[in-house]
Design a protein around this nucleic acid. Structure first.
Lengths: 344, 344
DNA sequence: GTGAAAGCGCTAACAG
DNA sequence: CTGTTAGCGCTTTCAC
């Protein structure tokens, strides 16, 4: 009794003809609109099922202006964090009939802009975005929200000044935890390899780091832009560790870059934590398996994805939730492992 | 001289009115169709640019039956391999104006089926798929290809018997390399934790492993279904290493599962490779950083994505390439590192 | 070379 | 309750 597997193009018209009724009646019946006799409605539904009817989303979209498409902008997919968020979002939206238009930005505001314009053009119902830059594309986002009335929810990052929903982690707190921990372990000479400048999380973490200027031994050469990439972080790490005066600990601003730093340490035959202590932003499955396991502050990407989806969904349902913004800041979790030495 | 950032709904009609010509002329002009005077065409193009016109993809799709949408089915995003493929595909298709509809299947044929039906319904122009199962959904795929005429390109995996393009890796060869290597290192007691049964790569690797039955010490309890998951692999590994008679080496059928095995080894205080040798399918950035670095056969996800996209693109261009199928089998690369001991 | 008209599949007034 | 009509934005005959 297998369901027909080959759903040939069957339109409202086909159903209408088969029952000798008009297309509009069929439309009403199938959409649960009032104004169709119970008996006829049931017949129509039956025929529709038998024929394997599914509405043409293009036609519906054209007419109704709603596409059941959600655009999701992420800098990248590699490296578990954003991948997990996207998976989580997909699971939350899937059963409600929404589909994901995937837009990797590579942290390039220009590519982000292109994607955004296309999403508007495609008439997506909503947009989830981890923006490439905390300043760029501000007016574009505002136009999308205010003029095109497409709900936008930021996650992990945001664009400063854009009034909309978001779910991010407490990056200040994350940096403070890491710093306080290192200090408590006796470290004063502390370096920071931060993510690509311009990214919201990079700016916040850097800003918070700089607030500790006086509590630590501050040295310009120990602060480097790892550009969110494994290679650049590797180079940054190497440079720092080659300088005359070395730090005793380095804070690494993201999981990709942690890989780069570990690679560099390995090549330089540096023992962690004996020769250099390392702590990192973001956890990953392999962090725990490394020798030594890496101490870090972590965010839960699954939760971020779920919350972002939930917020978007409520906007979608409730077009007129008005000005009340849902802005969530998640606590980070501190995972103490073995990558930090105690300094006397 | 910034480009207008807020492209309000501007249609062909708007342009037509502004120049006092008909909509059809504008359409022709903008689509480079013959039958418009050079002068008029230029004017139209200018006005279109000034107004920031972009064709409505829904309307175009409805009319022309082409949507510039590509569906991509992957089991998951976590873990770099498929994430990198998707990124690579996106980069290849992006500049040609194609967008990705992301469909994570979680290796569930039912979810795969749902996604496929929706993709057909959405009238995607093409489908890239790493199918969840080497048998399921065969007739659905065939219907999509033959009846709906939507080109399908399999990557990494395929569905047996479905006549279409694909790009996969040489899994038999991969398994042979691993096995021969272990044997050359003196191993005879070899276990295998394979990916979820039913997945193409799992079946092939298992089949090839079994062909070595007579050249190794074969033991049922050393072969386990790691279900492509970290947890299941961890449990499988633990069980195997608790059995009375232990293998000296274990082949792990995918990168996720490698993490699980390493975790298990750590918990059981097993030293690699002294207590147990490990080799793995698929490489990952962290494989090299582990202590010891993991010996493996690897495929290049970037290349897989690129080839798959290229094939699809040529199908899209050349609807009538006819029966000639492009079926690519990529060589795997063997990366010898330090996770295998030499057994006298 | 250009315009008018039909229609893709659907929804939503407006009439009966 | 049901059918007719119009139209979403675009492409594509078919006339002129």
């Amino acid at each position: 009794m297998e369901r027909r597997v080959t759903l040939k193009k069957v339109s409202l018209k086909a159903i209408a003809q088969q029952l000798n009724v008009s297309v509009s009646t069929v439309s009403r019946a199938l959409n649960g609109k009032p104004g169709v006799s119970k008996r006829l409605r049931e017949q129509i539904i039956k025929v529709a099922n038998d024929l394997g009817y599914t509405p043409d989303p293009l036609a519906v979209g054209l007419k109704r202006g709603t596409t059941k498409l959600i655009g999701i902008l992420v800098p990248e997919l590699k490296g578990d964090f954003f991948a997990t968020i996207v998976e989580s979002v997909e699971r939350a939206l899937y059963h409600l009939g929404y589909r994901l238009l995937l837009c990797p930005t590579e942290d390039d505001p220009k590519k982000e802009e292109d994607h955004l314009k296309i999403l508007v053009n495609q008439r997506v119902d909503g947009i989830l975005s981890a923006p490439a830059n905390f300043r760029s594309n501000k007016s574009l986002y505002e136009a999308i929200i205010n003029e095109h009335k497409i709900p936008v929810v930021f996650f992990d990052r945001l664009v400063e000044g854009v009034e909309t929903d978001y779910v991010i982690s407490d990056n200040e707190e994350g940096m403070r935890i890491l710093l306080e921990y290192l200090i408590s372990k006796g470290h004063r000479k502390i370096g920071f390899i931060h993510p690509l400048r311009g990214i919201y999380t990079s700016e916040i973490r850097l800003k918070t780091f700089l607030e500790y200027k006086d509590k630590i031994v501050f040295q310009e050469e120990w602060i480097k832009d790892g550009k969110s990439s494994e290679e650049d972080a590797k180079e940054a790490f190497t440079t720092i560790m080659r300088s005359k005066e070395k730090p005793t600990a380095i804070i690494v601003g993201s999981y990709h870059m942690t890989l780069g730093c570990l690679r560099a340490a390995k090549e330089m035959m540096l023992k962690i934590p004996e020769d250099i202590s390392i702590v990192s932003f973001d956890d990953a499955p392999w962090n725990e398996i490394f020798e030594p396991p890496i101490t870090c502050v972590s965010q839960d990407p699954r939760e971020i994805g779920l919350i972002a989806s939930t917020i978007l969904l409520s906007r979608l349902k409730n077009k007129k939730m008005g000005e009340s913004r849902i802005q969530t800041v998640l606590k980070v979790k501190f995972l103490e492992r073995l990558s930090v030495a105690f300094i006397k």
